[in-house]
């Protein structure tokens, strides 16, 4: 998709989101859903950047989110760093972990990268629950309670009054999604796509796989770590249950709905998925079943997600106009 269309879609999303509290601001439950939409949209966008554009099958996205969340909670609870500072530190820490995970992945291809990154996800849960976790302040299997709310310029952004926190998250969301847009549309994005398409050709034309792949690991895990930090100070508690299959699959659904590699589709996919998840909550155990069926239908009918579908509709119109008639 070109610059202009991407920017137009994103501007529309920002505008609509900024307006919503005027209509829905009184219902805390709805504001909570909107905040979750924004946070997950950032995480899904990062995943789309590394998987959809850079072609690296990193399955560590939820792990990075949880690492960021725990890091921020621990730094602020145990070491009494202000939550804002803790979130930044958590981002930096997660980026460092991302680079460490990225290093072995440089030598691996496709499915093996998925294995290594998912192994990180798998080892995280026992690590957080066990003695090591308790020693560094994860609270073991009980998790962390009473995480301090975010305070900035003397204002406390608590979940009890979600509208201010919503706008703060919106700013965070706008900055992160714009960074991702610029990366995709800059020469960095070109390098990612070139490496994804043909690593040998890309290297023979002067692109360093090492530099760009590590950068995408660092950048996406940094932003995901920040999102995790945001999340923990908003929700106020953390548990290793975040690492369950549920969240992982939900994140995949966001990408599937939005269309992998069809940024900003991931943002729209996240909004739809989070909202749908909440709306279907009353169905209890039937919810995963319905979501499962939806995924299958979606992947079969619209393999490129919503954005792919829209593009198809528009390009086929344009094609019809330009193709000669015999």
């Amino acid at each position: 998709m070109n610059w202009k269309n991407m920017a137009a879609i994103m501007a529309a999303i920002y505008g609509i989101m900024a307006m919503l509290p005027f209509f829905l601001g009184k219902t805390n439950f709805v504001m909570h859903i909107l905040i979750m939409c924004l946070i997950w949209a950032v995480v899904a966008s990062c995943w789309d950047l590394i998987m959809g554009f850079a072609g690296i099958f990193s399955f560590g996205q939820v792990a990075f989110f949880v690492i960021g969340a725990y890091a921020s909670a621990i730094v602020s609870n145990t070491y009494h760093v202000s939550p804002a500072g803790a979130i930044l530190l958590a981002g930096g820490f997660t980026a460092a972990v991302g680079i460490l995970v990225g290093l072995p992945c440089l030598r691996l291809k496709g499915a093996y990268v998925a294995l290594v990154t998912f192994a990180v996800h798998m080892t995280l849960e026992p690590l957080l629950k066990g003695d090591f976790g308790r020693a560094i302040g994860t609270g073991g299997s009980r998790g962390i309670m009473a995480i301090a709310p975010l305070k900035l310029f003397g204002v406390t952004f608590s979940s009890a009054d979600p509208v201010p926190f919503f706008y703060l998250t919106l700013i965070f969301f706008i900055i992160c999604t714009l960074i991702i847009l610029f990366v995709i549309k800059s020469y960095w994005g070109t390098a990612f796509v070139a490496l994804k398409d043909s690593e040998n050709l890309a290297a023979s034309l002067g692109i360093s796989a090492f530099k760009y792949k590590l950068t995408v690991f660092a950048l996406t895990s940094f932003i995901t770590g920040l999102a995790g930090g945001f999340y923990c100070h908003y929700v106020g508690m953390l548990s290793h249950r975040l690492l369950g299959v549920d969240l992982f699959v939900t994140l995949m659904v966001m990408l599937a709905i939005g269309g992998i590699g069809h940024y900003p589709g991931a943002i729209i996919g996240a909004f739809i998925t989070v909202t749908l998840n909440e709306l279907l909550a009353p169905l209890g155990t039937y919810r995963p079943l319905i979501i499962g069926i939806l995924i299958i239908l979606l992947v079969l009918l619209f393999p490129d997600g919503i954005i792919g579908l829209v593009q198809k509709v528009f390009t086929s119109k344009a094609d019809k106009a330009t193709k000669p008639v015999y």
Binding site: V193, A194, K196, D197, L201
Partner: peptide
């Protein structure tokens, strides 16, 4: 700079 015996291209570009 080089070319490859089997064509290498960037299909998305």
């Amino acid at each position: 700079s080089r070319t490859f015996q089997i064509p290498h291209i960037f299909p998305s570009m």
